[in-house]
Design a protein around this nucleic acid. Structure first.
Length: 437
RNA sequence: GGUGGGAUGCCCGAGCGGCUAAAGGGGACGGGCUGUAAACCCGUUGGCAUUGCCUACGAUGGUUCGAAUCCAUCUCCCACCA
């Protein structure tokens, strides 16, 4: 990879703001720049949204720079006021510790996958070094409050802090306000940058655009303490064409943890993106080259995309997060689910395909007498009430083994798709497996 | 502390004594078209039941044959004044 990292970030649409434009260009022109990005341990899993900074670190890495992924063991105890409309509840230390280890594992796994699946992401020379991990609790914990106020707090002007967006938006909202604790968040993040600057020669911090205030607080601190220059780069906060945040489905966030968002759901999330978003998503979340993406854009403009781009996107991202094996399963399940009627299958196959699909287990006897479809839809929680189930059937949205049920004919053993299983579907996309024992 | 205004279904919002399970919009859901897309079109959107019943318009009481609509008290919001 010979091109300039800032060039790559630009064409990927991942460059929002940066400090010292020309100087930074020059600095990044030669490899080996030490940089970092922070990850917040407010949850035990990262989401697709958190994947953006991680991708950025990998992009920097492939250009021969040396990223550090910092998990915020210390900052997590405080809470970043940025992007939050309300004060957040503090997490217990045990919780933070747990979250930290989970997130760290996720990050490491993704980096490892990027290495093996995408050799092109490796830095020139094959990547002797990897992306390093750090935890700011390691250097924040020993500080006493008084020492921190004397050595670090003294260098911050409250007047300046008040102008930062993250703080200002909370001050303007009189209902919510901001606690002294969250107000101080900025100092810690700024100090992190200073510490890494001193100890690791880390001269650049990257982050989402909402981190701009915290990043510049860090560069200011470094300048005050050392007289030297440090840099900051932010990427835009991505939204869909219709203005929603990326990575939120109706049901909530898309998690990287397979326990929370199954690989099948994860894959489906990407498949279901609309054309207007797919190019930006490919640019952000895959390693496709500029040429490939230009070709993709051309196809799209020519009206030639028939969902292939979404498929490519889903496959690439699921590979990276869950590995090729899980991706293949998700693809197989998707083919089956969105294909023809389900027949000539056995339990083993269905179990495999529907491994991630919610299921209900019922007494086999209930089939002998004829099982009421309305009751079943409610029991499987595909419908909230019998009225809703009736409506669903009437409107033609109820399916058994992918074949539409026009009326409430009782189900019998003849409806089993395999030895003991039956596949319910509501609408086009919502599946539920019923097992009879 | 004073004076006004408000609280309606998932959300916004009309209704201001019977025709109100409550207009309209959004969202959501289902169908159609398509590519598991968008846009668009159609339909549904309190619960239970075979024309009926029950629960609902901040809470509690009251007036009335009849209340989301009138009255009283309470709770919570919002605006202006001090």
């Amino acid at each position: 990879m010979q091109t300039h990292i800032l060039h790559e970030l630009t064409w990927r649409g991942l460059l929002a703001q940066r400090t010292h434009q020309d100087e930074l260009d020059q600095l990044l022109a030669s490899p080996g720049v030490r940089l970092y990005c922070g990850f917040d341990p407010s949850n035990s899993s990262l989401t697709i949204g958190n994947l953006v900074p991680l991708m950025c670190l990998v992009f920097f890495w492939r250009h021969g720079h040396r990223p550090i992924a910092l998990v915020g063991g210390a900052t997590g105890r405080i809470g970043d006021p940025g992007g939050k409309s309300a004060e957040r509840n503090l997490l217990s230390d045990e919780q933070i510790q747990y979250n930290l280890s989970c997130i760290q594992r996720q990050i490491e796994q993704i980096i490892a996958r990027a290495r093996t699946l995408h050799p092109e992401t490796l830095p020139p020379g094959g990547g002797a070094h990897t992306i390093d991990m750090a935890n700011n609790a390691d250097w924040m914990a020993p500080w006493s409050f008084l020492d921190f106020l004397r050595d670090v707090g003294k260098l911050f002007r409250v007047n300046t802090m008040l102008t930062k967006d993250s703080v200002r938006s909370r001050l303007e909202n009189r209902e919510q306000g901001i606690s002294y604790t969250e107000f101080s968040y900025m100092l810690i993040q700024a100090y992190d940058f200073f510490h890494l600057f001193e100890q690791e020669g880390c001269v650049l911090q990257v982050g989402g655009n909402d981190q701009w205030g915290n990043i510049t607080a860090g560069t200011d601190l470094i300048h005050k303490k050392t007289g030297q220059t440090a840099y900051g780069v932010t990427f835009p906060l991505l939204t869909t064409a219709s203005g929603e945040k990326i990575g939120k489905s109706e049901k909530g966030a898309i998690w990287l943890d397979p326990e929370r968002t199954s690989p099948y759901e994860f894959y489906q999330y990407w498949i279901q993106r609309q054309d207007a978003d797919v190019i930006q998503l490919l640019k952000t979340f895959t390693f496709l080259s500029e040429e490939e993406l230009r070709a993709a854009q051309a196809d799209l403009d020519a009206g030639k995309n028939k969902g292939q781009l979404q498929q490519r996107l889903a496959q690439e991202v699921t590979d990276l997060i869950h590995g090729p094996e899980e991706t293949q399963k998700a693809i197989r399940a998707s083919r089956m689910l969105f294909g023809e009627a389900i027949q000539d299958v056995n339990d083993a196959l269905l179990n495999q395909i529907f491994a991630d699909v919610p299921s209900t287990s019922l007494e086999r006897q209930r089939l002998f007498a004829g099982l009421d479809l309305i009751d079943l839809l409610v029991e499987a929680q595909l419908c909230a009430s019998k009225g809703e189930a009736r409506r669903l059937i009437k409107q033609g949205g109820a399916y058994v083994n992918n074949s539409r049920q026009d009326d409430n004919t009782p189900l019998t053993e003849a409806h089993l798709a395999s030895e003991s299983m039956l596949v319910l579907r509501s609408g086009k996309k919502t599946y539920h497996v019923v097992r009879f024992r």
